[in-house]
Design a protein around this nucleic acid. Structure first.
Length: 210
DNA sequence: GCGACAG
DNA sequence: ATCTTGTCGC
C-alpha cells in the first residue's frame, strides 16, 4: 500500500467514526494495545485485558511480525494495525473498550490509530498519547485536571493530568465514546502517569522480543 | 523554501 | 520506537 492509498483509506473510513457513547455501555473489561520493535524489522504486538474495577489482568495475547509499512506521521496506524488485529483475534475475553497507544481524533485527518482500530473492530476505543498533536494550555496540578487539545481551531482531545506533578497525557476519542467518558475511563486506569493497560501491553510486547 | 510531525 | 539503574527530590 502506498502512502497515497493509505490516506484515501483514512478518508473512506473516517465517516464511520462515532463520538457517541452507547447509553448502556458498561466497561468491565478494558484492552490495552501496544507494539514494540526490535533492532531489525521485527515487532511484537501485545494486547492485555484488565478488569476495569480491580485492574487485574484477565487475558492477554502477543504476536510477532514484521514492520511492512514505514513510520510516517499521520499514517502511523498502517504500521501497527495489522499485527494488533491479529493479537486481538487471539483473545478469549472480549473487551468492552480498547485503549490505544496513540491518537484518536487528534490527528491531521481526524482518524488516528484509535479511530481506525475502533471502526475496523466495531468496538468503543480511545487514544492515549504521550505527546500532543495540537496545542494546549498546561492543566492544573491536581489529578484529573484537564485542558482542551486544539488543532486547526477544533477541540480534538484533552491534555489530562493523570497524576499530580507529572506531565499530562493526551486523550482523544477513538470510536463509539464521548470525550468526557473517554477521560473518565482513562483516569481510572491510571496508577502512575500512563494507564495500566498501556504499561502492561508495553512490557508484554518487549518481553516477547527477548 | 522551512518547520512540524502519534510510535 | 529504541538506548536504561540507580538516584535525586518532594
Amino acid at each position: 500500500m502506498t502512502p497515497e492509498e493509505a490516506v484515501a483509506e483514512q478518508e473512506r473510513l473516517r465517516p464511520s467514526v462515532s463520538t457517541v457513547t452507547d447509553p448502556g455501555l458498561v466497561v468491565r473489561h478494558v484492552a490495552g494495545l501496544d507494539v514494540s520493535y526490535a533492532d531489525d524489522d521485527r515487532l511484537a504486538a501485545a494486547v492485555v485485558v484488565l478488569d476495569a474495577e480491580t485492574l487485574r489482568t484477565v487475558d492477554s495475547a502477543v504476536v510477532t511480525g514484521k514492520a511492512d509499512f514505514p513510520y510516517v506521521p499521520g499514517l502511523f496506524a498502517f504500521r501497527e494495525l495489522p499485527s494488533l488485529l491479529r493479537a486481538l483475534e487471539r483473545l478469549t475475553v472480549p473487551p468492552d473498550l480498547l485503549v490505544c497507544d496513540g491518537q484518536g481524533l487528534a490527528h491531521p485527518r481526524r482518524f488516528g490509530l484509535a479511530c481506525h482500530l475502533g471502526v475496523v473492530t466495531g468496538l468503543p476505543s480511545v487514544g492515549v498519547a504521550k505527546t500532543p498533536m495540537g496545542r494546549f494550555d498546561m492543566p492544573a496540578d491536581a489529578r484529573g485536571a484537564h485542558t482542551d487539545l486544539v488543532d486547526d481551531g477544533e477541540v480534538v482531545g484533552r491534555a489530562l493530568r493523570t497524576r499530580e506533578g507529572v506531565k499530562p497525557v493526551f486523550v482523544s476519542v477513538g470510536h463509539r465514546i464521548d470525550l468526557d467518558r473517554a477521560c473518565a475511563e482513562v483516569l481510572r486506569l491510571c496508577v502512575t502517569r500512563l494507564p495500566e493497560t498501556t504499561r502492561r501491553s508495553d512490557s508484554l510486547g518487549r518481553a516477547q522480543l527477548r
